[in-house]
Design a protein around this nucleic acid. Structure first.
Lengths: 174, 174
DNA sequence: CCTATCATGTAATCCGTTACATGATTAT
DNA sequence: ATAATCATGTAACGGATTACATGATAGG
């Protein structure tokens, strides 16, 4: 089995949580790493099962009640996480922005830019509010990722604002 | 059948090309939209077939030789593309940066930042070189997307440079 | 009491990645 | 000639999205 980014998200969250159910993982993702790398909740049921099959996690059941599954890292899981974390990667992300795709293929610049500027402004405000709360947080990793998110949202706002304000040249026929 | 971003990439490229084989599409993607939204070449065989089945494309075969498949837009395809293009979207992209994921989960700040700064610098240089070539290009859409790419690469360089230069506070144990 | 939302999970589908393959050019 | 790269395509697998489902809790 090859470990995917989703795998490392599960491993990384379990390192912090110690032991967690898929539902716990869902909550943890939502408040943190989900801001820049979301994982649908069904994956948080499937992925720990795969990881447990491959020996990276151990699984036990709640004694009473719903008998929910509780996962935690095995030594193998801890090692895999440490190895991954120690190896920097050169893989770059793509923008994969749906709005950029429309722009590329000839969408109306003004209309598109106006909508997207607002959407990015809203996201930016959300991030900035959160940064207030997390100001002194340790470890610093999560805080820095939030900073990255803010910087890129600002860049998007700049980008779409420039397009919205630009007197568009008469577009020739395609 | 629901149309995905990949679908619209195929539709959009065919609008420009008029008629193209999957291999032609591969070439077209590589030089243009692939910079911010890549599509593996096997998808460029599968997706036109799906689109043709659903009536968005017509298909004919080369008369002689390899009898390759040539796709072109039907009226239905043209309409779908126009509708998509006319409707701005509020869907925002996620960063999904593999390096950010490592940072989030505690990777060594200096080592990671040094590697990633260089990787982004290289990408930035590539984009800037391309911008020289495309300077006066019409339509403007593709040129603007290149600009977006450059802006975000610059932001990444700034971000990782700041992390590389930061005197890291003694990290407490996790 | 009723209804909405949260909590919790499973199933089906399908796109996308990866691997596999082979003929045609070009370079050495 | 031989190797390498380009051109061109197919097949298999698996992760991810989406839809489906149901019990619990809280608000009105």
């Amino acid at each position: 089995m090859a470990l995917t980014p989703t795998s490392y998200i599960v491993l990384g969250l379990l390192e912090r949580a110690g032991e967690a159910t898929p539902y716990d993982l869902k909550q943890l993702v939502a408040g943190s790493v989900g801001n820049f790398w979301s994982v649908p909740h069904s994956q948080l049921y499937a992925e720990p099962e795969r990881l447990a099959d491959a020996g990276y996690l151990s699984e036990r059941r709640e004694p009473g009640g719903r008998r929910r599954r509780l996962y935690s890292l095995t030594q193998r899981g801890r090692d895999a996480l440490a190895t991954w974390r120690a190896e920097p990667t050169r893989d770059l992300p793509e923008l994969r922005d749906p709005g950029l795709l429309k722009l590329f293929f000839g969408a109306d610049q003004q209309a598109l830019a106006a909508v997207r500027r607002e959407a990015h402004r809203a996201k930016l405000a959300e991030y900035e509010a959160r940064r207030q709360l997390d100001a002194g947080e340790r470890p610093r990793g999560p805080w820095h990722t939030l900073d990255a998110g803010i910087a890129h949202e600002r860049e998007w706002v700049r980008f779409w604002t420039a397009l919205a304000d630009e007197r568009p040249p008469a577009e020739e026929s395609r």
